[in-house]
Design a protein around this nucleic acid. Structure first.
Lengths: 302, 302
DNA sequence: ACAAAAGTGTTGTAAATACACCCATGC
DNA sequence: GCATGGGTGTATTTACAACACTTTTGT
């Protein structure tokens, strides 16, 4: 039995549900906001000396209704007539997670025709970053469960093909989302076609196991933005507590970039963005380290 | 008499038009695409020796209907039920300008509540770049006139205020759009509020003369994106003909960045992105220059 | 000849990279 | 003492800015 034969609370299968769904006389699309809420968490660590490893986590919600019943999807919902997109995003964030007042930025708007089987839906996605330590997420009023999933991002293949008038780059990415024994995977293909006069980037879901809608694509996009922006902005600090060690900060960079960094170089690079405090960590199985905070005078350009 | 008392082809003023406009029972917003079509053009030059100066140009359309009748606005229109956002953008581009197959990228989605006086409209904006030499724009089938406006971008003020918990950056930008004797201006205020936990960037129109809707904001945003992306991508080449001189390329960079560059440094920096050809310019009042083309093997990362 | 642009070389500074090394703590 | 992370110094390379200077054409 595939997921699509499963019945919802009204006893309908997905195809029965879709048949009964009234699509008629809507020539306007529905507009939703989808939230990509990321945080960084410590993994378990047995050795008392070693620092805990960090992992990048994404909040997903288990669908309690058709379509994609039982699968996991991004939190989100319809934009109300009286609220802006930003307000809608903030409202959805709060109502589904009780989180408020965190870093948020608009990511991209997804408008392919068949992306929601019910009707035409255009989704505006938002990236949000939270400090895990200042956080106690509860699934909101909806009885859906909300859960943090560890994010894995792996490039499976990169390919370049020369065409008559230009060339084509193809990249295949494997996404892995794990929470306890639940493991969701997706394969997303990025195809960039470049010629003299234009350049088109297409994103395509090759396979999506356990992730609803086209959300795998959106997640892939968001990780790309995160990786990009962490290099030249201060977004990493929105994932940190007020005081932090430089090693903890470095771990956040590493977990987002998916590669190791040299401590010496990292410290020098980050130095102008942080201020030293007099406080120290203690009770580690090694030399204590200074705590730092973000420097409000760091010169961002906008 | 202000613009708002002007009458449309049905003899209605803006407020009469709005009263008669049926807003009822639409709980779904309308969704449109707005196109920001940029190109670079030569200015007139009297001295036979001197190279013509370049200017950045943006395509605007004169509104023939309420609201903002008689003002200029970005080309765009409603997204049809059967087309994706990208397709809608390409269709609007073609139908209003007869341009096809050029560089296009989604910019940002604008969803404030009062941004269109008729009803709730959410607009997804697209940036498009054209090579002026390969271009003969005609206003599309609509009888509206489409016209290229020279773009001016000037920062009037930058201010930083320290707050109790963080700080605030304010930047005031003056936009100038000129076509012949038509001169449109707008003042846009950017306010970025930053604290430990969040960061919000608000964009606000202080004044907008002759530019309809909130399009001044969108134009300001697009110029920012252009300036940013020209530094690390190959978008500049979509504004160039197939073969070009390095000085012409440098002029494009200068006109977008709004500052002069040193030729020596520019050439070295751009060298890995271009290939030399054997062709030369001629009939200039000075030493001929080699023509270059974009190097398809330049390593973009995506 | 000369105005104007095309194009190269040289030098100083700043940033990123790689590696080696010493320091401080808990057990 | 030892494992582990905290933290610094140094040498090498790379990028870039500033400026001076030579080359080549049309009139």
């Amino acid at each position: 039995m595939t997921i699509h034969d499963e019945r919802d609370r009204n006893g309908l299968t997905e195809s029965e549900f879709l048949e009964s769904y009234d699509v008629s006389n809507y020539d306007r699309p529905s507009v939703t906001v989808d939230m990509l809420i990321f945080t960084v968490m410590d993994k378990e660590q047995e050795n008392f000396r070693k620092l805990p490893e960090k992992s990048l986590q994404l909040l997903l919600i288990k669908r309690g209704e058709h379509p994609y019943l039982g699968q996991w999807a991004l939190p989100g919902g319809f934009v109300a007539p009286h609220e802006s997109l930003d307000e809608g995003a903030a409202r959805e964030l709060y109502s589904e997670t009780n989180i408020r007042d965190i870093y948020m930025e608009q990511l991209y708007t997804w408008g392919d025709v068949g992306r929601d089987p019910r009707t035409r839906v255009i989704s505006c996605s938002y990236l949000a970053l939270v400090d895990r330590t200042a956080l106690q997420v509860q699934a909101g009023d909806d009885a859906d469960d909300a859960q943090w999933f560890e994010v894995g991002y792996r490039v499976l293949q990169e390919k370049k093909t020369n065409l008559a008038e230009g060339w084509e780059l193809e990249k295949i990415v494997q996404l892995t989302l794990t929470h306890g024994s639940t493991r969701l995977t997706a394969t997303v293909k990025l195809v960039e076609t470049i010629s003299d006069r234009k350049s088109v980037l297409r994103r395509e879901i090759v396979e999506s196991k356990g992730i609803g809608f086209d959300h795998a694509k959106i997640i892939e996009y968001a990780i790309g933005r995160l990786r990009n922006k962490i290099e030249y902005t201060d977004i990493a600090f929105y994932l940190m507590p007020h005081l932090f060690t430089l090693t903890a900060l470095q771990q956040v960079y590493e977990v987002i970039l998916g590669k190791e960094l040299l401590a010496a170089a990292f410290r020098r690079k980050i130095a102008p963005m942080v201020l030293e405090t007099n406080e120290l960590t203690k009770d580690a199985g090694h030399r204590p380290s200074k705590l730092y905070r973000f420097d409000p005078n760091w010169n961002r350009t906008f």
